[in-house]
């Protein structure tokens, strides 16, 4: 009994951030997701240390379709390229591209949503109608149309995906700002003569970031899926650059006889998206325990 009470007092001494970290660390699924993603990210970042970059592109017809073995842990593809090397280097591209898209969409969403939520009225109306326009078109179609207009290329595809993603973030930011803008500390800042920009981005936005971080984490998984889908359709990252969706599409013709060529890249996509979803759900519960059902 006394132990329990002690634990409780410890908790109440913790800061807001400490509480969030504590609640997150109690969530087994979220911690598992975090561990897997961290390991995967480290493997990808450290790739040049243990995989020769040459083996990603080097074709060798003598080594075609080698089944997984000690030398090639995941086997080789129809050009004799090591699948493990391509997957790990592909992970660098898939994960980084996902991060870039979410970051670009977040910046745009925070700026537009912050301004809309803080000023309200006509400015809010204009910005939100613009977001409505982008949200009315299914995301996949919108990003494909932007790729068609800009022309193909990895960076252009990333721009297209961020354009399709930013209205969601703008809405989330706006909603959380609108509940904060009448708080006393904002009034106090106004009385001190602080500029509007400083109030929005220094005082209001940081306090309303919680839901935004959650939707960004969940959005990262969805973005990696979208990048892989575009790669698979042949309008994303172009072969021979390795990207998980592109690798799947390269090997598509040979999956029938060598199923590992299709299983492995897909599993890497599914596992990383699933772990990112675990982290996002865990963050949501940690930030707002009342939401948990």
């Amino acid at each position: 009994m006394s132990k329990k009470i002690k634990k409780k007092t410890n908790l109440s001494n913790k800061s807001q951030l400490g509480m969030i970290v504590f609640r997150f660390s109690k969530n087994k699924l979220a911690m598992f997701g975090l561990a897997v993603i961290v390991i995967l990210a480290l493997l990808c970042v450290a790739a040049p240390l243990y995989i020769d970059y040459e083996s990603v592109y080097q074709q060798s017809m003598a080594d075609r379709f080698i089944l997984p073995c000690a030398e090639h842990p995941l086997g080789t593809d129809q050009f004799g390229r090591d699948l493990f090397a391509r997957i790990i280097y592909g992970g660098r591209i898939s994960l980084l591209a996902g991060l870039v898209v979410v970051a670009m969409a977040l910046v745009l969403g925070i700026v537009l949503g912050g301004i809309a939520g803080y000023y309200g009225g006509r400015i809010d109306n204009v910005i939100m109608r613009i977001c409505d326009v982008f949200m009315a078109v299914p995301r996949m179609l919108l990003s494909m149309a932007v790729v068609a207009a800009l022309g193909q290329g990895t960076f252009k595809m990333l721009i297209a995906l961020s354009i399709a993603a930013f209205p969601g973030y703008a809405r989330t930011v706006r909603a959380s700002i609108m509940t904060l803008r009448n708080q006393e500390y904002v009034e106090a800042a106004k009385c001190c003569g602080t500029s509007s920009a400083r109030i929005i981005f220094k005082h209001v936005v940081p306090n309303g970031l919680g839901p935004v971080i959650v939707s960004a984490t969940l959005g990262l998984g969805g973005t990696i899926l979208a990048i892989a889908s575009l790669g698979f359709l042949g309008i994303g990252v172009a072969s021979p650059t390795p990207e998980w969706g592109t690798i799947l599409s390269e090997n598509r013709a040979n999956i029938r006889y060598y199923p590992y060529l299709g299983l492995v890249p897909g599993m890497f996509i599914a596992i990383s998206v699933m772990c990112l979803n675990f982290i996002g759900d865990g963050l949501r519960d940690a930030l707002d325990p009342r939401m948990k059902n």
Partner: peptide
């Protein structure tokens, strides 16, 4: 639900094709 929402649809389709069709 956790599995299916993380799986790329094209991957699921390809695997289903191999298993059920071929």
């Amino acid at each position: 639900a956790m599995l299916f929402s993380s799986m790329p649809a094209f991957w699921f389709g390809l695997m289903a094709q191999i298993f059920f069709c071929l």
